[in-house]
Design a protein around this nucleic acid. Structure first.
Lengths: 225, 225
DNA sequence: GTTTGTTTAAAACATCCGTTTTTTATGGCC
DNA sequence: GGCCATAAAAAACGGATGTTTTAAACAAAC
């Protein structure tokens, strides 16, 4: 009966603790005791702590990758060769990202994990994600390239990462920001709200004018004449 | 003679290791051995590892806070009551942030530390920074408020944090991004480059049109008619 | 020259870590 | 019944961590 909901209990507990405190600050003893599971169970079922971390990510990223591929398939079919508008691409990505964790009410956890994956030193994680899910991202960026032919390649690369930073940073630090926002503006903030606010910002950022030429330098103390 | 360059050696070594691997992943033995200093010196001079971490931040943030106050003083004097344009405010902040670590050739370290301060769980750090340097940030946001009177307060709050996310995320993950960028676009990327690219994006994001009204919902799969 | 306060050095302490090993239970199959 | 693979539980291992204690060096003050 208890066949292997042990595995699920470990994953459920681990993702929450990881999201709250980070990987290094979360010990296997924290996880197993809170999950009411034997300490050795982690190494038995997953092999190591590293593998546990990767499994936590895979549980989100596998369905995400699958759904996102399907969504892009649909889009390409619908547009039949014509370029897909940037707004549609961004919107599709957003809804796909939001769909997966929504089924488990764990958007906050998922976003926090994404944030950790980037910022944490953990080299093995970045490598794992890159080689496991790099192709979905490549497919997406290629479609974005076609949607923004006027942007130089390097500029588009950086702007995409700028926006990735905005979204991950905001949604992963959501709790802290939400506290401040609600204290200062007495207004509840839902994730839907935030996505609504993010949309025009991201679009405007992607469509911003190109930066000045390299040679020309501006200084704050000479710009206001 | 050796009076207390021990303190400096510890700080110099600690900030580099912290930036490279994070706080939890850096042990006092790592620091003290690399700094060729006795293990007990950290607890003797700083009291604890937590206090060491805060001291590392203070060494950057104290001069930053001081300079930024002066810069804002100058601006307010120059504009003598008139509102300071948003671009000038942003530019001033940028140059101040860049100035402090530039004097020690440690911009990368500083940015990475800022990123860690946000993303890492370390509750004590956020609290310390908030209560120690919250007033400079408040002063800045108030000036931004006057520079963007058309923005609703909540909207401005969120957009400022969006942009904070962009900058910190990008500059703190710089090394990883730089690797990808140089591999794909065979082009060296300096921090100056990045700041140049960031400027129009941030300005456009702050000036983006307001989001749709709350009631109206958009879905990716119905938006492309 | 001895004393005093400060800094460094060395060693020990208690605790926690990830992992491995050993033992015990469980349930399907002949 | 006995057999066996699988899972869970308990115990132990080796090592690393932050901190504390004890001892030695050193400079300044008297």
């Amino acid at each position: 009966m208890a066949q292997s909901d042990t595995v699920t209990r470990i994953l459920d507990t681990a993702e929450v603790l990881f999201a709250e405190r980070g990987f290094a600050e979360t010990s296997l003893r924290n996880i197993t005791s809170k999950a009411r599971v034997n300490l050795a169970a982690v190494n038995y079922h997953f092999g190591s702590k590293k593998a546990l971390i990767q499994a936590v990510f895979a549980r989100y990223l596998d369905p995400f990758s699958q759904r996102f591929h399907s969504a892009l398939d649909e889009l390409e079919a619908r547009y039949a060769g014509r370029d897909i508008p940037l707004e549609v691409l961004l919107e599709t990505m957003a809804t796909t990202v939001l769909t997966v964790p929504a089924e488990r009410n764990s958007l906050k956890v998922f976003m926090r994990l994404l944030g950790l994956a980037y910022s944490q030193a953990q080299g093995h994680l970045r490598r794992y994600i890159q080689q496991q899910y790099g192709d979905v991202f490549s497919r997406f960026t290629e479609l974005v390239r076609r949607a923004t032919p006027e942007l130089p390649d390097a500029e588009r690369f950086w702007r995409l990462h700028f926006m990735l930073g905005t979204v991950i940073f905001t949604l992963s630090g959501l709790d802290a920001l939400r506290d401040i926002a609600e204290k200062d503006y007495h207004q509840h903030v839902s994730v839907r709200d935030l996505v609504r606010r993010l949309r025009p910002v991201v679009v405007a950022a992607m469509n911003a004018p190109l930066p000045d030429e390299k040679g020309i330098e501006h200084h704050a103390d000479t710009v206001a004449h």
